[in-house]
Simulated assay, not measured.
Amino acid sequence: MTLKSKHFIAIIGSFDRLKDSKENAKKFAENLGAQLAEADLGIMVFLAKEFERCIVCGYIDKLKKIKGEEKLKKIQKKTERPIQVRYITKQQGKVGFCEEKNMPKAFNTDQPIPIEDWEVPFYNTLVKAKDIDGVLIMAGGNTTLTAAQIAIALGLPILAIDGFDGTSQKVRNQLALNAVGFDYPSNSKNKNVKEGISWLKEECVKRTKETEQRNKNEDACLKFFSQTHKTKYLGVSLFTLFLMIALFFIFFDSWGGIFNLLISVVGLGVAGATGAGVRIVVDDSTDMVPISSIIVGGVAGLIVGLVYLIPLLLGGQGVRVPENLFYEAYKFLSAIVTAFLAGLGSDIVFKQMLSHAKDLPTKLQ
């Protein structure tokens, strides 16, 4: 199981309704940012308001000390940049941080949300974003409270700062009451911040492990049911194939040439379908729907089997009269084996044909 290399924390809150000393709150937020950087956690910010700016300021200062400014400037992949910025289209060019001018590659600002109102996409980002592993909440108002409830419903780890005015205190009390089997961390003082961030990271790692294990179990269940479904197709085609062979031998002398020819033709299609059934059971790499593979295999088996069988049915003077059972059985079973092999490789041939068909317009140009 491969765990994520970096976990991202959504930064939610504001100083808009703060009654306490704003200077203390700003210093506290900068310390939060520094501790997030020290814990090697990425951050996701939604607006460049005062609260987010303080978090980013502390984060970048600490990051430069840990990794060095030159190393930060060399980050190439935008998804690996430690600061992910989300904003709506009309805010493009307006949402920015002072640190971004000197450290542009520490920020990913290329994901604007194509909508005019910021509040709805903000909540949707929390709900849909797979990049968010946890949430940090400080102060804030009604929007912060709503975002916190969404995060709680999603089961995201939440660190709610309770040392300042705002709805984060309510959220912290709610989480502390709901905590089972552990003491929810208190973060009212700077000395508790490091412990709180460490707890948040541990919860993110724990949740990631649980999520990946759950996904692994779901994939295993889906694979099991898919394999069962494929095995049913193979079982039906095998039964039908053996039935055709049995009918050929049982009624060879009774039904005559036309009926034997009909059984041969149906048997070729079934043999091709059986070959395709064997392939989809053994090979998991095929991306075709099982029934489609069976149909393609059946058609391939019928065509290739007839190409093999027709020259044997035609003599120099026209259609050959059926001879003894041994010779006719030899022709029939040889054609069945050929049709089976054609069905076995039909997916590969079909994919190559589609690939060549797609490339043909380019070659013609």
Rank of each mutant, 00 (worst) to 15 (best):
I336G: 03
Q111F: 13
S186E: 13
D287W: 03
L72W: 05
G166D: 08
G68V: 07
I291Y: 04
L262R: 07
V281H: 01
F332D: 07
Q352Y: 12
I113V: 13
G298K: 10
S14T: 06
F122Q: 11
E100D: 12
I115G: 09
S198L: 08
A37W: 11
K216P: 00
T240F: 14
N215L: 10
Y327V: 07
L3Y: 14
L364T: 08
I11Y: 11
Q92T: 15
N31L: 09
A39W: 10
L41S: 05
T79Q: 15
W255S: 07
T143M: 12
T240W: 13
R320V: 07
R214V: 00
I137W: 10
N142H: 06
G272I: 04
A246P: 05
G181P: 01
P361H: 08
N187F: 01
K6N: 01
T2W: 13
E195D: 12
L32D: 02
F242D: 01
I150A: 06
F164V: 00
F224P: 00
S346G: 08
R207M: 08
L156T: 02
K201W: 05
I75F: 08
Q213Y: 03
W118H: 12
A176D: 12
V299C: 09
M353D: 04
G343D: 13
L341E: 05
G13Q: 12
Q227M: 09
K209W: 03
Y308H: 04
K62N: 06
T125F: 09
G141Q: 08
L360N: 07
V45Q: 11
D110S: 15
K191L: 02
G33F: 12
L32H: 04
A147Y: 11
V193I: 15
G315D: 02
R81E: 05
Y327N: 09
K170R: 10
H229Y: 14
F97Q: 09
N260F: 03
A300H: 14
V193E: 02
Q227C: 02
L312V: 04
D133Y: 00
V281S: 02
V282L: 14
S292F: 09
G315T: 03
G163S: 01
M103R: 15
M288F: 14
W199C: 04
Y233W: 15
G196Q: 11
I263C: 06
R279A: 05
L63T: 01
K223L: 08
D219S: 07
K27H: 01
K194S: 10
G58D: 09
G275E: 05
L18D: 03
